[in-house]
Simulated assay, not measured.
Amino acid sequence: MTEKVAYGSWSTGLCDCFSDCSSCCLTFWCPCVSFGRVAEILDKGSTSCCLHGSLFYILAIFTHVGGCIYSWVYRAKLREAYGIEGHHCTDCLVSCFCPHLSICQEYRELKARGFHMSSGWDGNVQMQTRGVTSAPAVEGGMSP
């Protein structure tokens, strides 16, 4: 598991994309994939990465505002889930005017909190139940 992140703050800044070049490149070229992975984990696997990513792509292509709102909801959800300081207004502004940076920061945040992003929710649950040390410890529990 990666190092512990302080409760109440983001693990990286909004513009710290180069601290994790792989997530930066993924989000730049395929933001729908990064967003889908983030949303699946925040929804604890109730909806797939593919569904979230596809919906984000459709909303962002046909109406930028729709993509902003969808992204904003999950940024606020992540911030509230981990007690990260901030406001809904800031979440909205960042999601609308810096969508790639916002999604990349959210992706890095979940990685810093121990999630293996490409495994999705179910993969992370399986890693935890098999005793793999890289599985995340989540408040509220990750139960299969």
Rank of each mutant, 00 (worst) to 15 (best):
V73Y: 02
R79V: 01
Y74F: 11
L51P: 00
V94A: 09
G123C: 06
V73L: 01
A112T: 00
Y74T: 00
C17W: 15
V94W: 03
D122C: 09
C50S: 12
V138P: 03
G83C: 08
S19Q: 08
T90A: 14
L101M: 10
V65R: 03
S11E: 02
N124V: 00
Y74A: 00
F56V: 02
G67C: 06
F35Q: 08
H52A: 07
G114R: 14
E85T: 09
V132R: 09
V94C: 08
M1K: 14
T90W: 11
T47A: 07
D16M: 01
M142Y: 06
S11Q: 07
G114C: 12
W10L: 04
T133V: 13
V94N: 03
I58H: 04
A137I: 15
Q105W: 01
G8R: 12
C68I: 06
M127G: 05
S9M: 06
C25D: 05
L101E: 03
E85Y: 07
A135N: 06
N124M: 00
Q126V: 08
E3R: 10
I69H: 08
Y7W: 05
C104H: 00
Y57N: 10
P144V: 06
C32Q: 05
G120K: 04
V94F: 06
K77F: 00
I41R: 02
F62Q: 03
G141S: 14
C50D: 09
S95H: 09
Q126R: 09
T12R: 09
W29S: 05
K111Q: 13
V125D: 03
G8Q: 09
F97P: 14
I41V: 10
F97W: 15
K77L: 06
C24S: 05
R79F: 02
M142E: 08
V73M: 02
F35S: 08
M127I: 04
A135D: 07
W29T: 10
F97A: 09
Y107H: 14
Y7I: 11
L51W: 12
C92Y: 14
V132Q: 12
T27Q: 06
R37D: 01
S48R: 09
C68W: 14
L93C: 15
I61R: 13
G86F: 09
F115K: 05
A112I: 01
M142F: 02
R37S: 02
R113P: 15
D122S: 12
K44T: 04
Q128V: 07
C50L: 14
T63F: 10
F28H: 02
T90Y: 11
G53K: 12
G141Y: 05
C15R: 07
V73E: 00
A81R: 14
R108S: 02
V125M: 07
Y57L: 15
L78Q: 03
S71N: 13
R130W: 10
K4T: 11
G141Q: 11
Q126W: 06
T2H: 13
E106P: 04
Q105P: 05
K4G: 05
S22A: 14
S48A: 09
A112L: 00
G45I: 10
V125N: 03
R108I: 07
D43A: 15
F62V: 05
S11Y: 00
R37N: 03
E106V: 01
L78H: 00
F97R: 10
G45C: 13
Q126G: 00
C96E: 09
G131V: 05
S119C: 06
H87Y: 15
